[in-house]
């Protein structure tokens, strides 16, 4: 959890730099300001990782307690946000509770190839053509969140960090301690999985 000590490394002065400096110099009451900055994004990240609200809340508490515990060792070698998500992801991975919604299985690329599916598409469906704002609604958000939760955790972590939280391939690799190529492989499979789920959703709905 503690960043490596490397005196030659240039400090990254992001928007949290001064606040962290203040906290680490003794103004510990300011830690709550740091919590407020990331409470919303971490809450949603945790919900997508844990399925139910209680587990998500436990995960956030544990994450912030770990951040508080290790903040003194933060060396500004990465953005604070990236380090925070590394702590959160690590907390999440440690919570290896088996869930019937997310069995830890491998996703094979072969399963998603059009040639291996019953119907090879001969046209682009409407849901991929109509303007995005006409497609997005509460029901679709709820569906995609449910389908994300049905992904095995190793794929879910990657797609949530990349496509929802907006981290780059390199940042995601750093947060999860994976190689960039491994992140790309997992991301591609997770996207294909969700694409199939969306296809089923729109076809069943005859949109």
């Amino acid at each position: 959890m503690t960043a490596e000590k490397n005196p030659k490394h240039k400090k990254i002065k992001d928007k949290d730099f001064e606040l962290i400096q203040a906290i680490n110099s003794g103004q510990t009451d300011k830690f709550h300001d740091l919590v407020k900055r990331y409470e919303q994004s971490l809450y949603n990240f945790s919900l997508r990782m844990c399925r139910d609200h209680r587990d998500a809340e436990d995960m956030i508490q544990e994450t912030f307690l770990n951040v508080f515990r290790y903040l003194k060792g933060f060396r500004y070698e990465t953005k604070f946000k990236n380090w925070l998500y590394k702590v959160a992801a690590s907390t999440c991975i440690k919570k290896r509770r088996k869930s019937k919604f997310a069995p830890e299985k491998e996703l094979s690329l072969d399963d998603f190839h059009p040639e291996n599916q019953t119907d090879v598409p001969d046209h682009v469906p409407d849901w991929a053509l109509i303007p995005l704002d006409k497609l997005l609604n509460q029901e679709l958000s709820s569906t995609i969140n449910q389908e994300i939760l049905s992904l095995p955790k190793k794929y879910r972590l990657v797609i949530v960090l990349r496509d929802i939280e907006g981290f780059s391939t390199g940042e995601t690799a750093q947060i999860l301690s994976l190689s960039p190529s491994n992140v790309k492989v997992r991301l591609h499979r997770a996207r294909l999985y969700l694409r199939d789920k969306l296809k089923g959703y729109f076809e069943n709905d005859q949109r």
Binding site: P121, V124, P125, W127, A128, L129, L132, L135, L136, L140, I144, I148, I159, D163, I164, G166, R191, L192, L194, R195, L198, K199
Partner: peptide, 11 residues
């Protein structure tokens, strides 16, 4: 195109 749309929905 369907994969692009999937990514856009997630984002």
């Amino acid at each position: 195109e369907t994969l692009k749309r999937t990514v856009a929905i997630c984002k």
